[in-house]
Amino acid sequence: MIQIECPFCGKRDQSEFSYGRESQITFPALNADENSWYDAVFLRKNTYGRQIETWQHTHGCRSWLLVERDTVTHKIFSVKLAHTDWQKQIKKTT
């Protein structure tokens, strides 16, 4: 069972988190054409190895996180808040 270092709550068991999606997906504008929405919703890289993905600390502070994880070894390289401004704020306070 992997552990994820939540920037607010510290190192916690995976069971407190829910997986979101691959984070390299860029969602197009709400009025973008069908093809770019199709790509964003249905096409996945399914990376073998290191990728950044989103997780939510559902049973904790409920932050959405960017977790850099190896999909083969499950090793976690970095964790940060997905919300860019919050990320800056947490840096200022620490």
Binding site: S18, G20, S23, F27, T54, Q56, T58, R62, S63, W64, L81, A82, H83, T84, D85, W86
Partner: peptide
């Protein structure tokens, strides 16, 4: 709830 949080934190910060 989780969906709204995701939209606000990840997609539309």
């Amino acid at each position: 709830m989780a969906r709204l949080e995701e939209l606000l934190q990840v997609r539309w910060p």
